[in-house]
Computed example of a mutant assay.
Amino acid sequence: MRIAPADRTLPPSPVDPPPPGWLDGVPPGLADHLTTALGHRSAAVTTRIGEVVAAALTGDDDFLGRLRPAGFQLSDEDSAARYGGPVALLTGRQDLVAGYADQFAALERYPDGAYAVVPAAGHYLPLEQPEAFRDLVGHWLARLA
């Protein structure tokens, strides 16, 4: 994954409008983030993810403010780096935060890697589509046995 937002390959924004009231009950400071991060836009999913994200909002905003514009190289961005062990790359098709295309490109560095992109999911795939996530992880784990 590419850390600097300008370096990421992101999908287009959804063209279908979200259902009315899908952000009801979400703290105002979270609404913009969830509008970008979620691909499965429903009140139930938004409430579930809003609770998890709101509970985790204890980050260092000053540090993140310096990190995000400059970015940093992740260990798997070294084109010579390869990992031969099993890897599962799972991503949401509507992930407007990290995208899905860069993860597919990273698959070259994982010769025993599996890749799946889930429609109607964004950045919070495990919470947006828990059944699909469970099935994909279960299939991947069964393959390892």
Rank of each mutant, 00 (worst) to 15 (best):
I3N: 03
A4E: 02
D7P: 00
T9F: 00
L10H: 09
P12C: 14
S13I: 14
P17Q: 13
P18T: 15
P18L: 14
G21D: 15
W22D: 10
L23A: 04
L23I: 06
L23S: 02
D24M: 02
P27L: 07
P27G: 08
P27A: 11
P28K: 04
A31W: 00
T36F: 11
A37G: 10
R41K: 08
R41A: 13
R41E: 12
R41S: 11
S42N: 10
V45P: 02
T46Y: 01
T47M: 08
R48L: 09
R48G: 08
G50E: 08
E51V: 13
E51L: 09
E51F: 03
A54I: 13
A54D: 15
A56P: 05
A56V: 14
T58M: 10
T58H: 08
G59Y: 07
D60A: 13
D60V: 15
D60I: 14
D61M: 11
D61C: 10
D62F: 15
L67K: 03
L67V: 13
R68L: 14
R68M: 12
P69C: 12
A70K: 04
A70T: 03
F72I: 01
L74R: 01
D76T: 10
D76S: 06
E77C: 00
S79F: 10
R82E: 08
R82C: 06
Y83W: 04
Y83V: 05
Y83G: 11
G85N: 12
G85T: 15
G85P: 10
P86H: 11
A88W: 02
A88N: 07
A88F: 09
T91E: 01
Q94N: 09
L96G: 15
Y100P: 01
A101V: 03
A101L: 02
A101M: 01
A101G: 02
D102G: 02
E108P: 03
E108L: 03
E108F: 05
R109L: 05
Y110K: 02
A114F: 10
A114N: 13
V117H: 03
V118E: 03
L127P: 08
E128Y: 02
E131S: 11
F133L: 03
F133T: 14
F133W: 02
R134F: 02
L136A: 14
W140H: 11
L141N: 03
A142M: 03
A142V: 06
A142S: 08
